[in-house]
């Protein structure tokens, strides 16, 4: 039987990245990572994956490009408006009862959903007692998130999402426009700490009241999903909340029995209080 050369090349490519730079994509779901590798190959004019592997090993700047492309996820403000509505109506009332609130936004990419969350907390009057840790392993994406400057042409779509999500004011209250950019108000990021954290290799964040990690787990294989979910479980207080992407689930995962669903459609779960 003919060996699957392409599969070997992909295995070697991912292993090279891990051994040389410490970023582990080997437990990512294969179909998407393969697509990204092939896309990268075309974009950078390579004919073979193994040619790219060789350049990555010898030139860190090539690797930089790869890691950027690998981790960039498409996101938007108030993505899935019904999720934010559910967060506002079903979760915020619980969060209001705590004297302070710690929130971990894992895999925040370029930050659009972090600002969405900040807006929501402000409108519900609990922003000032909240600390938000927004993490990603992509330093370039984190830079964008820290700056909070987005394309002005997207604001119309964001504004629609915001209204559908139950926004209480006008979305334009939260940014000012300059040239073709929408610059998010600094007061929104005052309590946000943007930090580099790799879900695959890094550890627990302690005593969180709410963890959001949306559309990240779908890129992981089952083993890695379980590992990361365990990390979330250990990072949450009893009674804390876990919010996943609309097509992600705890069903059949290793932590399924430690959580109960609060909103099945919008994938919000609560860690069961013990004792």
């Amino acid at each position: 039987m003919k060996a699957d050369i392409e599969k070997i090349e992909i295995d070697l490519f991912l292993e090279a990245i891990f051994k040389c730079y410490g970023y582990d994509f080997q437990l990512y779901a294969r179909a998407s990572i393969k697509r990204r590798i092939k896309h990268l190959m075309k974009k950078n004019g390579y004919n073979r994956i193994s040619d790219m592997t060789s350049d990555i090993l010898h030139d860190p700047s090539v690797f930089e490009k790869v890691v950027y492309d690998f981790s960039i996820t498409v996101t938007e403000m108030f993505r899935d408006p019904s999720f934010y509505q559910s967060l506002r109506n079903k979760i915020i009332p619980y969060l209001k009862t705590y004297p302070f609130i710690k929130i971990w936004h894992a895999g925040c990419a370029t930050g659009e959903e972090v600002y969405s969350l900040a807006i929501l907390l402000k409108e519900e009057g609990i922003y000032n007692k909240a600390t938000i840790f927004a993490t990603d392993f992509n330093e370039h994406a984190l830079d964008v998130a820290r700056q909070g400057i987005y394309s002005l042409k997207d604001t119309q779509k964001y504004s629609t999402n915001y209204q559908k999500a139950g926004g209480k004011a006008s979305f334009s209250d939260y940014y000012y426009a300059r040239y073709n950019s929408a610059i998010m108000r600094k007061s929104l990021s005052k309590n946000v700490t943007f930090a580099n954290h790799n879900l695959v290799t890094d550890g627990v964040f302690g005593e969180m009241h709410l963890i959001l990690c949306r559309n990240v787990l779908i890129y992981f294989n089952k083993d890695l999903q379980n590992k990361v979910l365990t990390l979330f479980n250990e990072s949450l207080i009893h009674g804390g909340f876990l919010a996943l992407g609309s097509k992600e689930t705890l069903s059949f995962s290793s932590i399924e029995n430690d959580f109960k669903p609060i909103d099945k459609k919008n994938k919000i779960f609560r860690k069961i209080k013990k004792g």
Binding site: R30, S32, V74
Partner: peptide, 22 residues
């Protein structure tokens, strides 16, 4: 395929979803 998600097939004949760019 769910709206707004790409649908892919994995080697082990399971389904995968992604929110990669259009």
């Amino acid at each position: 395929a769910p709206p707004d998600y790409h649908l892919l097939v994995e080697e082990d004949e399971t389904l995968a979803l992604s929110v990669d760019e259009k």
